[in-house]
């Protein structure tokens, strides 16, 4: 999904660069109170972690392999805006040092993977978590929504990517959309499983590290049950 240079026309990449710059500027402003010198090492190492985790490929079918996006994971763990900024850093380094995604397409790639596949999916996740939370426990509703919206995030990102390519006249929409969405519907299942398992394990051992979780720590509950 990392679009290289030359695949988008100037009006598409120009617009999306502007949109992504706006989001990034707002993110720096919104997360300003949180971005002290204590969290910068944490964000840097999380960025390195997402980078490394993207190297654990899982094969899908017929030779294509998917690596995961990590946007939902970053946001559930760090919160929306710090997670967004980590994704921007990852995409920036991938672009400058791995030529993975182009320079003029950087704005478009941030838009696809960090705005559509990230922020939008994350806020939908938090909305439905709130709705589910009325009948289910916080842990169950968070994990259910993480599973569903990690899948949705990958599929939405692939739809956005297809539209960007089609609007630029690089590929016809009618053929690229089903192909991209089909492949990413499968990749999304892997993304959903990995993200959910990671959040479940982190909830078990360090619930304080999950930003989207506000409930009582599991261990605390167990102790409380045993004391009672």
């Amino acid at each position: 999904m990392h679009i290289p240079d030359g695949f988008l026309d100037p009006k598409t990449w120009g617009t999306l660069t502007g949109v992504s710059a706006g989001f990034t500027g707002y993110a720096l402003y919104a997360a300003k109170s949180k971005l002290n010198e204590k969290v910068i090492p944490l964000l840097g190492i999380t960025a390195a972690f997402i980078f490394a985790a993207q190297m654990l490929n899982f094969p899908v079918a017929g030779g294509t392999s998917g690596h995961f996006l990590g946007a939902i994971l970053a946001m559930v763990l760090l919160g929306a805006w710090p997670g967004f900024l980590v994704m921007v850093v990852v995409l920036m380094v991938q672009c400058l040092f791995f030529a993975d995604g182009g320079l003029t397409a950087l704005g478009a790639n941030i838009f696809t993977m960090a705005v559509i596949g990230g922020l939008m999916s994350y806020y939908l996740l938090m909305l439905s978590k709130g709705a589910l939370g009325r009948s289910l426990s916080e842990r169950t509703s968070l994990l259910t929504c993480t599973a569903v919206f990690s899948w949705i995030s990958v599929v939405l990102a692939s739809i956005a990517c297809s539209f960007e390519l089609a609007i630029s006249g690089t590929v016809p929409l009618g053929t690229v959309l089903p192909a991209m969405v089909g492949v990413h519907a499968i990749i999304g299942v892997g993304e959903a499983i990995i993200t959910t398992v990671v959040i479940a394990v982190v909830l078990q051992s360090r619930p304080d590290l999950v930003d989207a979780y506000s409930g009582p720590p599991e261990l605390g509950k167990r102790v409380a049950r045993e004391v009672a």
């Binding site: 190492i45 972690f49 490394a52 899982f58 899908v60 499983i193 990671v198 394990v201």
Partner: peptide, 26 residues
Amino acid sequence: GRWIWQARTVGYMVASLFLRSHDRAE
């Protein structure tokens, strides 16, 4: 790590990678 249902194990690996990375960050 050949099939998609083995993504669960990859998930455990990623989770412990995150916890170790976080400890390292601290």
